[in-house]
């Protein structure tokens, strides 16, 4: 009886949120799935059903495959760069919570995440500029060889990774900090009494205890990595003074297919593939962590 009443309250309370979710998330996602099986040019009134032919065409599409490869490299690159450094940074900031500068550390790492993307990307574009940018100026000063950052096939991908990591780091640090602050202090006290060093308790206490948080942050970072678009777009924008090599990424290819090539169904098929990849990766990551936890 009591259980039933609580169940009813839970459902009633959750209903508005769920309704909004259904309206602005689930329904459009289902729409996308549906569109991927149709041929639609955005303009005409009829959308003929074409089965899986969009998908079949995609796997012979050179630009799509390039985009897929680039996106995967960027997403994993950002994750590998961001997660370990965010954890260490959060640990250090947490350790120095009482420092007079703790506020500065936290703010300075987090600000890149909250500033608008267009100006931030423009700033980086200038930094990477082969002829005018401070990065090459620094390299030359140190006696190195200036690089054409935005034009080299490998370096241009690296530039996107750096820009994305710069933005993603603050978010990861923030979530890790919440995690650190929620860790039971008693365990650390005990470890300290047992003579464990700071590094030891980080390695053997924090890292395992933070596993659920690490999982979440990794998934989120990976997903936003697969979502990369504006960063690549701005770094290669058609600005005449210095356009860069276009690092073709999935979302860019998708938007190009829907708004330049008017192939909404085809773009939706791309979106579905993006979705499948992200789902598989998330599943794998969950499984991996569960297995480790179980051991």
């Amino acid at each position: 009886m009591l259980r039933r009443r609580r169940w009813r309250f839970a459902v009633m309370a959750l209903l508005p949120t769920f309704a909004i979710f259904a309206w602005v998330r689930l329904y459009p996602i289902v729409q996308t799935l549906n569109l991927s099986l149709h041929d639609w040019n955005l303009l005409s009134k009829n959308k003929p059903f074409v089965g899986l032919s969009n998908f079949i065409e995609l796997f012979g599409d050179r630009l799509f495959l390039t985009a897929l490869g680039n996106t995967a490299i960027i997403a994993f690159g950002v994750m590998l760069l961001t997660i370990p450094s965010a954890m260490v940074l959060a640990g250090l900031i947490h350790y120095r919570t009482r420092s007079r500068f703790a506020g500065f550390y936290e703010t300075s790492v987090f600000i890149p995440h909250v500033v608008s993307l267009v100006p931030a990307a423009m700033a980086w574009k200038w930094i990477f500029d082969a002829k005018l940018g401070p990065l090459n100026a620094l390299i030359t000063r140190l006696g190195g060889e200036p690089q054409s950052w935005l034009f080299d096939p490998y370096l241009s991908v690296l530039c996107v990774i750096i820009l994305c990591s710069w933005q993603a780091l603050g978010y990861a640090v923030l979530i890790f900090l919440v995690g650190f602050r929620n860790l039971p202090t008693s365990v650390y006290e005990a470890a300290r009494l047992d003579g464990a060093s700071g590094i030891q308790s980080f390695r053997f206490l924090s890292v395992p205890l933070l596993k659920p948080i690490t999982l979440y942050v990794s998934v989120v970072t990976l997903i936003s990595g697969f979502n990369v678009y504006a960063q690549a777009f701005v770094l290669a924008s058609d600005a005449q003074g210095a356009p860069g090599r276009l690092v073709r990424v999935l979302v860019l290819d998708m938007l190009e297919n829907s708004f330049r090539n008017y192939r909404v169904g085809y773009a939706a098929a791309e979106a579905v593939i993006l979705l499948v990849i992200v789902l598989v990766l998330t599943g794998a990551q969950f499984a991996l962590l569960r297995e480790r936890n179980g051991r």
């Binding site: 082969a130 002829k131 054409s148 935005l150 034009f151 005449q240 003074g241 210095a242 356009p243 090599r245």
Partner: peptide
């Protein structure tokens, strides 16, 4: 000309 040189109207 090289790929990374400033190009077009601005150059």
């Amino acid at each position: 000309v090289t790929v990374e040189m400033p190009a077009d109207a601005e150059a």
